[in-house]
Structure formats: structure tokens, C-alpha cells
């Protein structure tokens, strides 16, 4: 596991991606701090962290696009499979390597509040709480990006896909607040979601019976619920969409709330997507 971790770290710093990622994050953070803090004489960094979250979303595919897709593209995954290391430790090692690269700019950024505190008032607990939330957000995005990378063997496809996913996650709050809340609309939208779920199952197991029965079960449950209690569907779809939103979870930290459920939420997202990545890599052996 350590060997894979070292190898991944080396490869990030052996080519341009690691440096590019770090310098993009630091460059934008620098610009934001210059504009928001230095030029406008404002010591509240939490606002800046908020803007920075968007840069994080744009930059994450730089790290994640190659992490598993490249192994497949170059057929080096066969080496990893034949080594006496389990798939889960390979994936975890890869994740930790990405996390380490991500930690570098975050460590630099963590000095900012200290520097700024010499020139104005910094609410340290709030600022560092927001920074921690930012770190958790970035870590979750890395896990999601890694999962997308595990789904394809083309780095470009992987980059575009994870970029799309990141954007949806970022804007899911805005989308959710504009969705109609009538039960019927919710029902139709959830039906569409079930269809998509069925398609994903079909792609993963390549078995019509399984995917169709999964779809049928969900549809029947939905239909029964809808018949019995339409009120249940009032705004349900919007709720689902906003629940998916990773970004809304960390907004509260900026207001000085240390929200434990959000921390648990981020950790669950990380765990879930690392787990899914392991499954996606394992699955390839069973195709």
C-alpha cells in the first residue's frame, strides 16, 4: 500500500499535474485574498473561502482524471492486479496520494489567517472551522472524481464527466430552489431518476432481467406511495436534489456554526465514493 502511495505521489510531482493543481489553487487564493482582504481592508476570510470553493471544483478533475483511468488506458492495471496487494488498499493509497497533494496548498492557505491577524481581527475558530469544511469539501470532491475516473478508461472522458458532476453538485442548491414542488412533478422526476438508476445497473451488470426488476420494484413502490399519500411527494424531488448538494453543507461553517452532521455527511461521501471506486475497479475483473 505504501509503495502505491509513494508511486502516485511521485507521479504527481513527476509531471505537470500536481504542480498545476497546487499553483492554480494558490494563485486564485492569492488573487481572492488580495482583492477581498488586502485591497478592501477586510479581515473576514470566510467569504473568500466561499468563492474559493468554486475554484476547487474547477481544479479537482486535474488530479482525479488520471488516477484510475490512466492505469486502464496504459494497461498498467494488470500489474497492480497481479501484485500481492488488495484492490481496496490500491484505491485507498491512490486516494491518500491525491489527498496529500491537496493538503499542500491547503497547508499554505492555513497560514493566511495567521498573517492577516497581524493587521486586523481574525475570528480564529470561525476561520479555521470554515477552512476545515473547505478541506472536507475538497476531500469529498476528490473521492467523487476518483469514482468517475474508475468508470472510464479515457482520461478526457473522465475529466469532462467529473467536471460535469462537480458543476451539478455545485449548482444543485440553485437548481433545487427553482424546482416546482407539486407532487405530480416530483413523482415524474423521481420516475426519471429510477430509469437512470436502471440504466446504470444495466451498464454495470449487463443483465436485462436484473436491471428491469430493480426498476420495476422501485416503480411499484413509488406508485403505491403516490396513490396512498400524494402529499409525501410535495417538494420531494427538490429535497433530494438539495440533499445531494455537497456545497450547501459547508456554507453553514462560514457563518460560524460547527455543524457535526455536515462533517459526518462529508466523511460519508468520502467513504461511499472510495468504496464505489473499489467496486468499480473490482468489477472490471468480472467483466
Amino acid at each position: 500500500m505504501l509503495a502505491v502511495y509513494q508511486k502516485e505521489l511521485k507521479s504527481y510531482f513527476g509531471n505537470v499535474f500536481g504542480y498545476l493543481y497546487i499553483s492554480i489553487l494558490l494563485l486564485f487564493m492569492g488573487i481572492f485574498v488580495t482583492v477581498n482582504q488586502v485591497n478592501s481592508l477586510n479581515s473576514d476570510l470566510t467569504e473568500t473561502f466561499g468563492t474559493f470553493g468554486f475554484v476547487l471544483i474547477l481544479a479537482t478533475p486535474l488530479l482525479t482524471m488520471r488516477i484510475i483511468a490512466e492505469e486502464r488506458q496504459k494497461k498498467t492495471d494488470q500489474l497492480l492486479y497481479s501484485l500481492p496487494i488488495s484492490v481496496s488498499s490500491i484505491v485507498i493509497a491512490k486516494y491518500l496520494a491525491m489527498l496529500t497533494v491537496f493538503t499542500v496548498p491547503m497547508a499554505v492557505i492555513s497560514i493566511y489567517p495567521y498573517i492577516l491577524s497581524h493587521f486586523g481581527f481574525i475570528d480564529a475558530p470561525v476561520t479555521y472551522g470554515a477552512l476545515l469544511a473547505l478541506y472536507l469539501l475538497g476531500a469529498s470532491l476528490l473521492a467523487i472524481g476518483m469514482f468517475v475516473s474508475a468508470l472510464t478508461e479515457n482520461q478526457i472522458v473522465s475529466a469532462i464527466l467529473s467536471f460535469l458532476v462537480m458543476l451539478i453538485i455545485y449548482f444543485s442548491d440553485a437548481i433545487a430552489s427553482n424546482l416546482p414542488t407539486e407532487p405530480k412533478v416530483s413523482f415524474i422526476a423521481i420516475t426519471a431518476l429510477v430509469l437512470i438508476l436502471g440504466l446504470i445497473v444495466q451498464v454495470m451488470v449487463k443483465n436485462y432481467i436484473v436491471s428491469l426488476s430493480v426498476m420495476a420494484v422501485f416503480e411499484v413502490v413509488l406508485a403505491v406511495l403516490f396513490k396512498k399519500n400524494p402529499a409525501l411527494f410535495e417538494g420531494l424531488f427538490a429535497k433530494i436534489v438539495s440533499w445531494l448538494s455537497v456545497s450547501s453543507r459547508w456554507v453553514v461553517f462560514r457563518y460560524g456554526v460547527f455543524d457535526l452532521t455536515s462533517v459526518v455527511y462529508f466523511l460519508s461521501v468520502i467513504f461511499l465514493f472510495v468504496f464505489l471506486s473499489v467496486q468499480a475497479v473490482e468489477k472490471r475483473r468480472w467483466s
Binding site: 505504501l2 511521485k10 496504459k74 494497461k75 500489474l79 497481479s82
Partner: peptide, 28 residues
């Protein structure tokens, strides 16, 4: 087992020495 698949599974951004020491470490 040591296995050479059909297409040599080499990392093009490594030198042979780095690559082989990675495999060595991974094999314990």
C-alpha cells in the same frame, strides 16, 4: 507469481529503476 501481460505494464513517466523498485516494494 511474477506476471508479464501481453502489453508490458510500464509507467511511461518513470525510469526503469524507479519502476522496478516500486514493483519490488509492492512485492514486499
Amino acid at each position: 507469481i511474477g506476471y508479464l501481460p501481453e502489453i508490458p505494464p510500464v509507467y511511461t513517466d518513470m525510469t526503469p529503476y524507479e519502476y522496478l523498485s516500486f514493483v519490488g516494494k509492492a512485492r514486499g
